[in-house]
Nucleic acid binder design. Structure first.
Length: 933
DNA sequence: ACGCTCACG
DNA sequence: GACGTACGTGAGCGTA
């Protein structure tokens, strides 16, 4: 191609290279080259921007010539005029400096001209080139948003803000400075510039400067006629500082006569040389960009290899948490940069912002990502305007990437098993993504790490963890969405408010991950975390998404029946009481029973209120009082109605017709799950009336509900861990464990045993697991305390291993501050060395935790293996109720499912632990949960 | 916001 | 000798 001389019809683009570099540096994480740790984040961003720029079509304004202009050094001729010029400028960051020469190399690799001149600023070179090109009859676009360049705008010269994609002409300049481009330097001379340390006139800003210039025409006239100014202070300022203002003008005036090497012809646009460009990119180890460029150029991408450094670099000191490094991603190219950074790093901290805590209803509002501490981004996709449009529809705010494009771009990363996704309570995000067809793989969860380390010590919410382990107070969500009645959903939060909050969440998650990771192995809970916590995420998420069908018609019918029954009972109660009162108020009831009717039963609790709990009322009823008996009836019905038949209906999902509970993995200290919204782990079963609620939990047509539950799992674990021969033998023989206990304690044969005796033995068996006391047993069995104590003494005599186990457990807890289950789960016992009444509670909790915890571990192990075991069956696991799993299965496969699930459940302790008692699982099936249980 | 009460394992 | 007393949960209601 022959160089044509620059002239009419030519279009020169002048790119402000320094601005590109700084923008790239601040927008991207501090990436380093894998092989040697060279910082290359700014280079990566610079290359991405340059690539985007050279592949941009630019429409009819396509450049014929282009150059990237850099600052050469910090000292320029302006320092001779005014030594303090740009003296306020901080030194560029340590990890940016080595990247300056690399950006020149990058520019040359793209085959774009690269210009810098000793002693001159980039702005002067740009000015000189622009003047030359304009004088030759061509047009010029300066790619920069630097206001100092606006003085150059005019005939044939305009600017392009590369971030906003906005063209800047004389009108835009006038908007900014209040004067035309030709008077910009006058205004700048007066207003000064604190960033560049241009003094200007004290107390005069752009507004006043523009006003003065517009009034007097130009700066020189203004200074000459300064004495005419009416405002005394302003007049004096201009007179006193005339010389300083003139110097300022020289500082801000760009030098069109800056010496230039070469001619404009040399700047003609050239295609990049594929070998040179790809060689450079591969050398920088930019995998994604190398591949992208190779594809576009139709060349083969060179292999990007990055041997890890031979010695691990010292961990850099973490910067304080600060929102300055956060980016709001509004362009696919920027998202591409992040994805490239994630791919390089092999891990990402991620957090979804949504409109609701209910994952079934929540709409995605934005996603935040963090790859290294200090840099995070927020990708808004669902923010809407504060007010609706004319039709009451929420309007998406502009400047957001389309949600489906963002998700499509992130899907490969999220599903890539080679990229670790780090989250805080990732089950939530997993479900959100699952609803968009993305199944996240390779997960790390800081909430679960904290739980594996610190169950028993504190809760595991992010705000608490951040404060406790990072010393950082998070932005309270209430600052964004408010609270109470005026609370808004997250989609109505302004993006500029949401971004720092959301990005901070991702960064904190990342830092917590780095904090907890070494602690897991140090404190020997890696196995518990990896085998008992982490794998629960997708298992529970799938169960929760599946939900269980609940028949609202049945519930409604029950509600009506309960309402009638309650009304009748209320009449009867008011009659018996001799006055009307709120039957649901324990306070009013207590006053009626104990003040008005003077029944026996004293005050209780710190509040001084009378206790009207069920056992108090039962005692009164047993003495023949009708009122307490009716109250007990009323309370039972009231509970069933309010908590179950009424509240349950509100939890039926309108889209699925099913109830989707949420399981909290870290809610219970012992490893048990907790079920919320609604709690499906406390659906009534003990009374006939309550059990009927379970008739409303249905299998879908052609299906059955199947329930499998562990028989006496905690007693079996006790028999194993405390090594109690009599108990173990009973379980091996498959005999009635409570009858055996009674037989051993009281010396009566199992055959033909008095049910009352068995009941007492059963109460003791359970009591032992809880850290029994004579008082507790006496109250439970309603027998004299001395008698209860005598039973316990007998029990321990007969099974001395239990006492030994309890003493050992408490001693271990006192020494270690924690206890462990058979499977290595750690439960902290912070209160164990307390004195006083609290010590008793801590002691009992420490005794119970390894038993309850081991049972929880076992069913978790079963649940984790279950999806694989039932993969080929038309069945889904729906619910867990501590020792029970509920499935929904096509009716033809009921027996297969029971066989498969039972095999998994009964073998769940193995191979980690070989129990010396068998685990036994009972199964039931039916059209509804009442039948199945 | 807190305590009481009660549903479950 | 007194103290408070069975372990682990969640939800709805009344009261402050």
């Amino acid at each position: 191609m022959t160089p044509t001389s620059f002239g009419k019809g030519c279009h020169l683009h002048l790119i402000d290279g320094s601005a590109f570099i700084f923008r790239a540096y601040h927008a991207l994480p501090p990436l380093t080259r894998k092989s040697d740790g060279l910082p290359v984040g700014a280079v990566a961003g610079f290359c991405n921007m340059l690539w985007k720029y050279v592949t941009d079509e630019h429409g009819s304004d396509a450049p014929t010539h282009a150059a990237v202009i850099f600052d050469h050094s910090s000292k320029t001729f302006r320092n001779e005029i005014y030594p303090a010029y740009k003296a306020n400028r901080p030194e560029p960051p340590e990890d940016l400096r080595p990247q300056f020469p690399l950006t020149r190399d990058a520019t040359r690799a793209f085959n774009v001209s690269c210009i810098e001149t000793e002693g001159y600023e980039a702005d002067d070179i740009i000015a000189a080139l622009a003047c030359q090109a304009r004088d030759a009859g061509g047009s010029v676009t300066i790619v920069s948003s630097d206001k100092d360049l606006m003085q150059l705008v005019g005939d044939g010269v305009r600017m392009l803000d590369p971030i906003k994609g906005k063209l800047i002409g004389p009108e835009e300049v006038a908007e900014k400075f209040g004067v035309g481009p030709d008077r910009v330097i006058d205004v700048q001379a007066l207003a000064g510039d604190s960033v560049d340390n241009v003094p200007g006139a004290p107390g005069i800003g752009i507004k006043t400067a523009a006003q003065l210039i517009n009034e007097y025409g130009d700066l020189e006239t203004l200074l000459e006629r300064a004495s005419e100014i009416k405002q005394p202070k302003r007049r004096q300022t201009l007179i006193d500082h005339a010389e300083q203002i003139r110097i300022s003008k020289r500082l801000v005036t760009l030098d069109c006569d800056t010496p230039l090497e070469g001619s404009l012809q040399d700047l003609e646009i050239r295609d990049p040389d594929p070998d040179a460009l790809l060689g450079f990119l591969a050398d920088m180890e930019f995998r994604t960009l190398t591949a992208r460029v190779a594809e576009r150029l139709g060349a083969e991408a060179p292999a990007v290899t990055s041997a890890p450094p031979s010695s691990a670099p010292a961990a850099p000191e973490l910067p304080a948490i600060d929102h300055a490094g956060y980016q709001t991603v509004t362009e696919m190219a920027a998202l591409g940069d992040w994805i490239a950074a994630i791919t390089e790093a092999g891990q990402v901290a991620i957090d979804c912002e949504t409109t609701s805590l209910d994952e079934m209803q929540a709409k995605l509002v934005g996603i935040s990502l963090a790859v290294v501490p200090g840099r995070a981004c927020y990708i808004p996709v669902g923010h809407v305007a504060g007010s609706d449009d004319l039709f009451g529809q929420a309007m998406l705010v502009e400047g957001q990437l389309p949600q489906d494009q963002v998700l499509a771009a992130l899907k490969p990363v999220l599903e890539d098993p080679a990229i670790l996704k780090i989250g805080q309570n990732l089950k939530y995000d997993w479900k959100i993504f699952a609803r968009h067809g993305i199944r996240m793989a390779s997960l790390a969860d800081t909430m679960l790490m904290s739980y594996a380390l610190n169950a028993g010590s504190h809760n595991h919410g992010m705000d608490e963890l951040a404060e406790r382990y990072l010393g950082h107070k998070c932005i309270p969500i209430k600052e964004l969405i408010g609270s109470g009645k005026s609370q808004i959903t997250f989609d109505r939060v302004a993006i500029d408010k949401a971004a720092p909050y959301a990005a901070e969440d991702a960064e904190i998650t990342l830092r917590l991950y780095d904090h907890f990771t070494p602690m897991l192995s140090d404190q020997r809970v890696t196995t518990a975390y990896e085998l008992l916590e982490r794998p629960m995420i997708p298992v529970l998420a799938d169960m929760e998404l599946a939900g269980i069908k609940v028949d609202t018609d049945t519930l409604k019918r029950m509600s009506n029946a309960f309402a009638q029954k309650m009304a009748a009972l209320e009449d009867e109660i008011h009659e018996l009481a001799g006055e009307k009162f709120n039957v649901g108020s324990p306070k009013q009831l207590g006053e009626i029973l104990f003040d008005k009717m003077s029944l026996a039963g004293g005050k209780q609790g710190k509040t001084g209120a009378y206790s009207t709990s069920a056992d108090v009322l039962e005692d009164l009823a047993a003495e023949g009082h009708d009122l307490p008996a009716r109250i007990l009836d009323w309370r039972q019905i009231s509970k069933l109605k309010s908590t179950y038949t009424d509240a349950l209906q509100t939890h039926v999902d309108p889209d699925t017709g099913r109830v989707h509970t949420s399981y909290s993995i870290t809610g219970a200290q012992t490893g048990r799950l907790a079920s919320t919204d609604p709690n499906l782990q406390n659906i009534p079963v003990r009374t006939e009336e309550g059990r009927r609620i379970r008739e409303a939990f249905l299998a879908t047509p052609g299906h059955r509900l199947v329930s499998l539950d562990y028989s006496q799992i905690e007693l079996r674990i006790l028999a194993h861990v405390a090594d109690i021969p009599a108990l173990k033998q009973a379980f091996l023989d498959g005999i009635d464990i409570h009858a055996m206990t009674a037989s051993q304690m009281f010396g009566v044969p199992v055959e033909g045993m008095d049910p009352m005796i068995r009941r007492r033995a059963k109460a003791i068996n359970f009591g032992v697991i809880y850290g029994i006391s004579g008082f507790g047993l006496s109250r439970n069995l309603r027998i004299p305390r001395a008698e209860a104590q005598a039973f316990i003494d007998t029990y321990f005599q007969r099974f001395p291993e239990i006492r030994a186990y309890m003493d050992k457990t408490v001693a271990d807890a006192k020494q270690d501050g924690h206890v462990r289950t058979l499977f290595g789960r750690r439960i902290n016992t912070p209160g164990i060395n307390q004195s006083g009444p609290a010590a008793g509670g801590a002691r009992r909790a420490a005794i119970n935790a390894p038993i309850q915890g081991a049972a929880a571990d076992i069913i978790r192990r079963a649940m984790i293996r279950m999806p694989d075991a039932i993969r080929d069956l038309p069945a889904r696991m729906l619910l867990q109720v501590h020792d029970e799993l509920v499935f929904e299965v096509e009716e033809s496969a009921v027996d297969d499912l029971i066989a498969a699930a039972r095999r998994i459940m009964e073998g769940a302790a193995e191979p980690a632990v070989k129990l010396n008692v068998p685990l036994v699982v009972d199964a039931g099936q039916g059209m509804n949960w009442a039948e199945a249980h």
